[in-house]
Every structure is written in C-alpha cells, then in structure tokens.
Design a protein around this nucleic acid. Structure first.
Lengths: 221, 221
DNA sequence: CGAAGTGTTGATTAAGATCAACATGCGTGG
DNA sequence: CCACGCATGTTGATCTTAATCAACACTTCG
C-alpha cells in the first residue's frame, strides 16, 4: 500500500527533523492511502517519520483483536523513533497521509556528533512519555464523559483551536484511544451536543464546533 | 519526613547511575520511611534517584483524589528524570526505602561531554516509555483478571522469579496501578489462589508463591 | 443500485464499583 | 504486657456504568 510519490524528491530537511538529525541529513516524501499500514508492530525499524499532511494512529493489539491506540499524530508530528531494532507498535494512515521519511541509521550516525540533536531527541522521547503518563491517568481513572471531554480538548489544542475542527478519526478510533466502545463515545458526544457544549457541522459528524470550552474543561476531571 | 542517614557519605558512584552521569559524579544516600513523599508533582526537579533498598510508587492524582500509579520502582531502578524543571508526578516510599541521590544539574553538565551517557539516558527514557505503552494497553483493554495476572507476571520477572515473592505494595496500590478497586484485585487474587495458580504464605497475604506461571501467562491476554 | 462503512439510539446484560460486615495484624501508649 | 485503634485484606450483597446486542439512517463507493 506504500506509494512513492517522487523518488527524486531527496533534499535537505528543515523543521524539527533537522533539529534532531542535523542539517546534512536527507529525507524523502511518501504517501500512504487511508487505512494503509506505515509499519507494523515487531517489524524492523528502518525509518523515522514526520507527517506533512494527514493523520496517523499508532496502536497495539491483543491476540483476540482488542486494540489500544497510543496516540494520534497530526501534521508536524514525528513518530517511529525506536530504541530497539523493532517497532513496538503499528502505525497506520487514518486518512490520505504524506510523510517525510529519514533513515534511522542516518539519525544514529548524526546524533553523537551533535549534542544539541541528542538533547532534542531526549526531549522528543520525553514528550511522548509525558503524553503516555497523562493518558494512563485517563485510561485508568476517568469516566467515559471525562475521557471524551479530555479527547476533544486535546484535539482542539493540537489543531490550534479552529472555529470548526475536522476530526480525521472515526468513533471506533476514538473509542480505542479512550478505552471505550464506539457506542459509548457516540453517546457521550450526544450528551455534549444536547448540553450545547459542541455542535456538529456537515453530514459526517466529524466536523465539530466547540461552543463552550470552559464547560468542557470542567467535565474533564 | 526526609531523614538524612549520613551526610558524609558522598563518594564516587557506580552501577547504572555512573553510566549516565559519568564516573566523576557524586551522590548521597538518603532514607525515607514507609509512606513518606520523596518528591511531589509540580515540585522543582532537583535530583535523580536510584533505589538501593525498598520500593517506590510514582503516581498522578485527579482533583477529587482518584489516583493512577504509573509504576513501581524496585532496588536498582532509577527515577526522577525530568525534561522540564518540575516533576510530572509524585514519588512515595512504599516501605522503608534507601536511595542514592544525585543533583540533576550534575547530570546535565556531565551529559553533553559524554555521548555514551547521553545514549544511556535516551535508553532509560525509552524504557519508561515502553513500559507506559504496554501499560496503556493493559489499562484500556484488559479485563480485571488479565490485569492482575499481568501484574503478578511483571513483579515475578522483576524480582527474578523467587520461590516466594514478597510484594511491598498494598491491594490498594495494586488497584491504583491497574485501574481497578482494591476489592476487585482481592477477588482476582482469590480466584487465582482457588485455581491453584498461586499460594499465599505467612499471615499478611503479601508473600506470594507462583505455582503455575504458564497458566497465569495464559490468563494474561 | 446494492453493499459496505459510519454513526446514532434504544434495550438489555455484565463486569466491576460501591456499600457493608468482619477478621486479622500491627503499632502505640498505658 | 496487654488493650485499643487503625490499617489491611477478604467476602458478600447490591448497584451503576459501560458493554453488548440490535435496529435503523445516511453516506460513499464500486
């Protein structure tokens, strides 16, 4: 399912990826279609990724198919860093997604020579850890309504508080992120809609307008 | 509640702490009594810690007191690394605990000069992240029995499979680690005992003998 | 057009939480 | 040393939240 857009698109990188890898590293652009796998749990970790367009979910599965989504990645986000040789989870494009890819070994070579890059890398991993710590609190101790409120606030913040945010993920994805069923997510959203805390636009129920962020913040524990 | 054992006990460190901090760093030994706080969420992060004796829980609280324990730390484990200036969670001694303490700033100074130390540090944070990822799967998607089975297997592994393991933490601690109530933890343990998968020794119900690790592994999803 | 995917809502069930009672261990102070 | 109070742990009864089962509407896409 991997489509190389433009093999000749190798060029010096910029942005956060440059900060960790140094200015000399090169990268390529790739496209993934909606639902396609970027890498699988247990696969050899070859690249690191930065999203330029689209959205990605990373998740783990139990043997019987139960799924826990660790995190959603949006444009600008990087993922796929691994300490070991293999990926610890699966990454999939939620919608049509464009990513920049850099060889992991290039990163490793570039790193020790650049103390600043090394610090950036630690900062990046720490950021993920911090998110995971907050998410453990959510998963272990929040109610369904609190979870959904927290999710909306997280997305609102990461999308820079647009008037109407367009969620790339389905109700099932949200449920698997929050440790709920899709029905429970749907019911919680209906409650928030009935309470005039949010409003849906369009026909797909994925375009959400936040009417009362304060009330929402109070619903999140 | 902090008791300095021996102020004059500064000496060169060894072990994992030396690996990240370099051989020149110094550290002190401290004791904390059962239940006392080592550092609090939001406090300025001054030190990093390595346990030489005892056990520590790190947790986050919601405003109404609901608690989520991120992790248990046992002898040899290090904790208290922070990227930011403040601690993201609280750390408490579960039982009488002895720790080695090193100034965080010493670590930071020692780091850039030592590429190997920097890599060790990344490895350490990654290890924590990996644990958090596995724990999110547990919290979000496992049943109570699966959670308790996974907990026992984790502790068994970390205590190097002793004949009888002595759990330092209470049922409530276990519950707050697994996102359950203490009653549910107690019931799950009773089921495992009735199924001859484990046996309790002594009077406190904290000394656990693993009778059938394979069966236990099958109960963990 | 039909089929599959997505989302909402209602009815019912089940897992785990809550409420409660009781047993035992342990530390403290008389 | 014992008595008391508190912490800890188990078990039972009941309740609540979210899961499950189900029906239906709408969209999208081949």
């Amino acid at each position: 399912m991997l489509i190389r857009v433009n093999t000749a698109s190798r060029r010096p990188i910029d942005g956060p990826m440059a900060a960790v890898a140094g200015p000399r590293a090169l990268c390529s652009e790739f496209k993934y279609r909606r639902g396609s796998e970027i890498f699988g749990e247990g696969e050899h970790a070859e690249y690191i990724y930065q999203i330029s367009y689209g959205a990605v979910r990373t998740y783990k599965l139990l043997a019987d198919g139960r799924r826990q989504i660790n995190s959603f990645h949006l444009p600008g986000d990087m993922f796929g860093f691994e300490n070991s040789e293999t990926h610890r989870f699966t990454a999939e494009a939620i919608v049509e997604t464009h990513v920049r890819i850099m060889k992991r070994c290039n990163l490793l070579e570039a790193m020790p020579s650049e103390a600043a890059g090394s610090k950036k890398l630690i900062g990046f991993v720490t950021e993920n850890l911090q998110h995971a710590e907050n998410h453990m609190l959510l998963l272990g101790r929040k109610t369904s309504l609190e979870k959904v409120a927290a999710f909306l606030l997280e997305m609102d913040g990461r999308l820079a508080h647009p008037d109407v945010m367009t969620l790339p993920m389905s109700r099932r994805d949200i449920a698997d992120y929050l440790g709920l069923t899709l029905e429970t997510v749907s019911r919680a959203l209906s409650i928030l809609r009935d309470d005039k805390i949010l409003r849906f636009h369009g026909t797909t129920q994925r375009e959400v307008e936040m009417l009362d962020r304060e009330k929402l913040a109070k619903l999140d524990a």
